[in-house]
């Protein structure tokens, strides 16, 4: 008998708690929740790629494209509505991912990783040297509106927070469905045996391409939310260390479930916040130590902690991926 899929229910419960939480959380925590979710969305894309055996060192490219799409949408196109801005950012990610994906889906392993890194660094170089795009200072973003209505600062924060939570829930559910779909399984299959996938009648390149485009769109959404949350974008969003951070979070959370990205992101931001406060000069050492500990003791990431004692009840997909991750 197929296991009951608990994920949709968990998404609804978690989203409801987060929405209610806004009225309880201090302002800094609400800001942090949006940051966590924005980064987790990018990591969801990283996880989708990792399932098919690809590690992108350049997701910062789409994170940055999403952020700048919001800023340029406001400044050039005079768009201020939050939903139109987010749609614009996703469209920018979709277009860029669809074009670059044609090239990237030809590469595997280290070549894919380095190519993705190179693309993001090219964007970083262009942005940091273009005066009209703010150069290294970046661009500011004014407070978004809702259907043309200007909001007070607190209302705007509420709007960004709620929009982020609801969109994250929708994206999480959609990606969860995708990884349980035939193409989701095909993603895992191409990682193991591209030739057999080809003889099944599927095109491995199309599988890689689909995953790449999905990862691009969710990364752009994450970048757009970050831009709206902080009211500022800068070329550093495309810098290699930013892309490295997304891989760091993916490894921390694990790749066995779409929600692992959110767990990883939450733990990462929490450790960074407290590490910065406790040891401002050594916070990177603390983060590095935590990652080493996770790799040594929880090779399947923090999400594996939720699987203890659940082996028999876990879904087939979870089991399959858990076992793959442990090898």
């Amino acid at each position: 008998m197929r296991a009951f899929d608990k994920t949709p229910l968990a998404i609804v419960v978690a989203t409801t708690l987060l929405l209610v939480g806004f009225f309880v959380f201090p302002a800094w925590l609400s800001l942090m929740v949006v940051t966590i979710i924005a980064k987790a969305l990018v990591v969801v894309g990283v996880v989708v790629l990792m399932r098919s055996g690809l590690v992108s060192f350049g997701q910062g490219l789409y994170y940055c494209i999403g952020g700048y799409a919001v800023s340029l949408g406001e400044q050039v196109l005079q768009i201020t509505d939050i939903f139109v801005l987010l749609a614009l950012a996703m469209a920018a990610g979709l277009v860029a991912g669809s074009i670059l994906g044609l090239l990237m889906s030809r590469y595997r392993e280290i070549f894919f990783a380095m190519f993705s890194l190179a693309l993001s660094m090219i964007l970083y170089g262009i942005l940091s040297r273009t005066q009209s795009l703010g150069s290294t200072d970046g661009l500011n973003i004014v407070q978004p509106t809702l259907f043309g209505i200007k909001l007070a600062t607190q209302q705007a924060k509420l709007l960004i927070y709620f929009t982020t939570c609801v969109l994250a829930a929708l994206v999480t559910y959609a990606v969860h469905r995708y990884i349980r779909s035939p193409l989701g399984y095909a993603s895992m299959a191409v990682r193991d045996n591209e030739i057999r996938v080809e003889y099944l009648g599927l095109a491995p390149k199309k599988v890689f391409y689909s995953n790449y485009v999905i990862a691009s769109v969710v990364a752009a959404l994450g970048g757009a939310i970050t831009a709206l949350n902080y009211g500022h974008v800068q070329p550093d969003m495309a810098y290699w260390s930013q892309s490295g951070e997304f891989i760091f979070i993916a490894l921390m959370g694990g790749t066995s479930h779409v929600a692992a990205a959110f767990l990883g992101s939450a733990v990462f931001e929490t450790i960074r916040t407290y590490a910065l406060e406790l040891a401002p000069d050594a916070w990177r050492v603390i983060l590095g130590g935590v990652l080493i500990a996770i790799i040594c003791f929880l090779p399947k990431g923090l999400w594996s902690l939720t699987q203890f004692g659940k082996r028999s009840g876990s879904s087939d997909w979870d089991r399959v991926v858990d076992e793959k991750d442990s090898t």
Partner: peptide, 30 residues
């Protein structure tokens, strides 16, 4: 030529799903 982490049933269901073309393969569960 098989996929080491999948069950036999999943191999077969993926083979059947590969015969279909379209959006169904993106969203409906295997």
């Amino acid at each position: 030529q098989l996929f080491p982490e999948m069950t036999i049933l999943e191999h077969m269901m993926l083979a059947f799903a590969a015969l279909q073309v379209g959006l169904k393969n993106y969203f409906y569960p295997l």
